[in-house]
Design a protein around this nucleic acid. Structure first.
Lengths: 236, 236
DNA sequence: AAGTGGTCTAGACCACGCA
DNA sequence: GCGTGGTCTAGACCACTTG
């Protein structure tokens, strides 16, 4: 990025994460930062606004910007993170298997979820996530074939997001997420090590691109003992 | 509020919610809005930034700001919403019972959660949430007594947040939330209608004030069939 | 009174989408 | 080429905290 405020944000995040700026101390004042980065206060404030939104600092009028204690979460499904990004934080303990990759004629339910009009085909990707040798997450992804013409097993084993954002140049922008708890289906039993659990945590994700077009519906089904969701929220 | 950009934000939200601005159409351009509200573009942009953060619009460079389809969620535990605010959306179907209200000497676990140093007393509030006549949520709240000297049953039956923000003038600012699934404890069985369910959804909340001080730890225990979490997230 | 963050103005230039 | 949103500047005044 060439954006000054992004650079300043990145640099400050780095300083916080490496402990050069410590939690419960204060950031340099906006005027000091303005001086240091040779820019204007509004630009500094854009960077600080990002820090605040992401939970790194709390701004207090008249006092300054307090650095928060962000213990980096070990398993955040929060926000928009792909399993690949997650897995890299977990080292060699995570693995992905592609169980199915096909174009299908969508059911009525899927048509509604993906807001499809006509008889458009969709990609169905079924993947199982392996944690410490146990199959604990079942991911079912559906894409409009119009938007993603080709998809290979290799891409699905790696990261679909990487393919879409990197290779195809599309920009994933926001998502609506819903978490509920359901009873395991036959499919869950087929693909997962359910053990004795009588519930499955279902995370439904509606993913949108930059231009506000819906392009993916995902159902992520987690064995309850391996499910954890962490979130940071500001009061509106 | 006297802030121009908040007023503009509120007005635009109103227009969207009342359907005067329709989903999948575009907002007037920033220049048009600047003209209409007799202000500068940066101020308009602050208002639009808020709309974007809250999921009302999607900005697309070169095109405009697309209004998103915000079907108002029927049961959002998302963000920071108190049960009282929720209940008002659900009409007469929701009820709260205060099962216990006391000051206690915190356990080691609680001391760690609330980051207490010495032998400070804490409030313990245990409440049961009733939905359609079934006891489905168990809320356990803990406050530092230093920060909240007095607390009454009436306040707890109504809304603790309202009391704290309205009557005491403290400002709740942000929270860290964690969702996991556990086995029901004896306490869950005691207070809730668990039926045959063998899991409980546990939402742990760490709530902070304006000045970045932690002042509340809450454990909200939901019967799985009545649990639903909806979230809107932007990619970072 | 001095220093902090919060808001607002008036203007500039750039990047992108579209006809 | 025009209109859109994205970034940045230079400066002003206000609200709040602290000594």
């Amino acid at each position: 990025m060439n954006n000054k405020y992004i650079k300043i944000y990145d640099e400050l995040v780095g300083l916080i994460q490496e402990g050069n700026l410590k939690p419960n101390t204060k950031l340099p004042s906006e005027n000091e930062l303005r001086e240091r980065y040779q820019t204007t206060r509004e630009t500094i404030r854009k960077a600080l606004h990002l820090l605040s939104e992401h939970g790194y600092i709390q701004k207090v009028q008249g006092k300054g910007s307090i650095i928060l204690d962000v213990k980096k979460f070990d398993f955040p499904i929060s926000g928009l993170v792909s399993f690949k990004e997650l897995a890299s934080k977990m080292g060699q303990r995570a693995k992905t298997t592609v169980e199915n990759l096909d174009t299908i004629t969508p059911s009525d339910y899927l048509k509604e979820q993906l807001k499809l009009k006509k008889a458009q085909k969709v990609w169905e990707v079924i993947r199982v996530r392996d944690l410490d040798g146990e199959k604990v997450i079942l991911d079912k992804d559906y894409f409009n074939k119009k938007m993603i013409p080709t998809l290979t097993k290799e891409v699905c084993e790696n990261s679909i997001y990487e393919y879409i954002e990197g290779d195809m140049g599309l920009a994933i922008s926001f998502a609506k997420k819903e978490i509920t708890v359901e009873e395991p289906t036959e499919e869950d039993h087929k693909y997962l090590h359910i053990k004795g659990y009588s519930n499955i945590v279902v995370v439904k994700n509606y993913v949108y691109l930059d231009d506000a077009s819906l392009f993916q519906y995902t159902e992520s089904r987690h064995r309850p003992d391996k499910f954890r969701f962490v979130d940071f929220a500001r009061r509106k």
